[in-house]
Simulated assay, not measured.
Amino acid sequence: MTSNKGGEARKHHYVPQCYLKGFTHNGSRQSRLYVVDARERRAFPTTPLKIAAERDFNRIDGDEPNAIEAIYSDFETKAGPALVRTDARGTFASDEDLAVILELVALLAVRNPRRREHTRKFYEHSSHVMMDLLVADKQRWEAREQRAIAEGFTEPSIITYEEAKEFVERGEYRVDVATTRHVELELKLLPTVYDLLHRRTWVVLRAAPGSGGFVASDNPATLCWDDEKQAEGFYPPGFASTHTSVVCPLSKNVAIRGCFDGRSGAIEAPANIVAAINTRTIAYSDRQVYAESDQFRFVAPDGAVLHGHALLSIVPPEMKVTGPVSPPS
């Protein structure tokens, strides 16, 4: 959350600054990150304040438009210290810290531009189907219009059936979803995802010295099938699905992996595991990857392990890397 002097907070971070600062050089909001932006085809240094944010991302209709943003800001005051303690210890300091961090992971999973765009496309597809049905038959169109007029829902239209049918068939319209609706859906989904995350057992992965460290992204909480055959199938995994793993980097030094296999504790991740996890984070990002420097490692499509400065040369604008997205067991 960022406050404007003398005004309301309008720049809302969908990836919290308290999270992003763990990937900077010295762990502060003023320290710089190395950012790779696939859509703009550039890499640049900046601070957590200036990235992973949109104007009015959490603004809702009503008398208190920033109520949800204020709640998220309050949550960050708990999440920040929990992240710092986990980074320093290389493990969870307490059950309370685990609970706060899993709440953060759930928030990262359900509240981001990529999920909102998927939601918008779902509504748009549904609208296209409905509109196609409405103009499929002239008599049905006219009957529905007369019924709507009789029930007081609309006035007689100045658009003819033929004009409406041509408009629908061209498909040259976009369906947008109000931010308030996005927020409502996210708030309904959040406790369910949190509960399912809590049912998993969690391993803390500490990046080995010289591994290049973990990276973050604008969509860092990733959910994948553990079996390659399932991953290649038609059905995507769900948070309740067995034989899946949730992986989320928490800082440049620490990442966590949650499964239903009963494993927990903390282990040191060698360079090849760190590179595999970074590849997964990159593959599921929307457009941006965040790291301490350009020396992080990832796995290229041909299996070669490369450093971060080579990433832009091999990814398309939607930031997809075809490599191993699940770290070895």
Rank of each mutant, 00 (worst) to 15 (best):
G171H: 09
D97P: 01
E124N: 09
A216V: 08
R29C: 04
R115K: 08
T160Q: 03
P65L: 14
Q295N: 08
V15M: 15
D37L: 04
Q288Y: 01
V168N: 08
G213M: 02
L83Q: 06
R55V: 09
K188C: 02
Y34V: 01
K229A: 15
H198M: 10
N58H: 15
Y14E: 03
E268T: 14
L133C: 05
T2Q: 11
G210F: 07
N253C: 07
R144M: 01
V177L: 10
D97K: 06
V135Q: 00
I273Q: 15
R39Q: 13
A53W: 01
P45H: 13
A310V: 00
A271P: 00
N4C: 07
A300K: 10
K188S: 01
A300L: 02
A52K: 10
E40D: 13
H25R: 09
G152D: 07
S211Q: 11
N219S: 06
A38Q: 06
K138S: 12
P45K: 09
P328D: 08
L187D: 03
P237A: 10
L250T: 02
V183R: 05
K21N: 08
S326F: 01
E76H: 09
R144D: 09
K252G: 03
I273Y: 05
D137V: 05
T281H: 11
V35A: 14
H125R: 15
G80F: 02
V325G: 00
A53F: 06
K320E: 05
L83M: 06
D56P: 00
R140F: 06
T91S: 11
P48I: 13
G213Y: 06
F92Q: 02
G80E: 15
E169A: 11
P156L: 05
F153I: 11
R181Y: 11
R174F: 03
G80S: 15
F234T: 09
V325E: 02
K121F: 08
P236M: 05
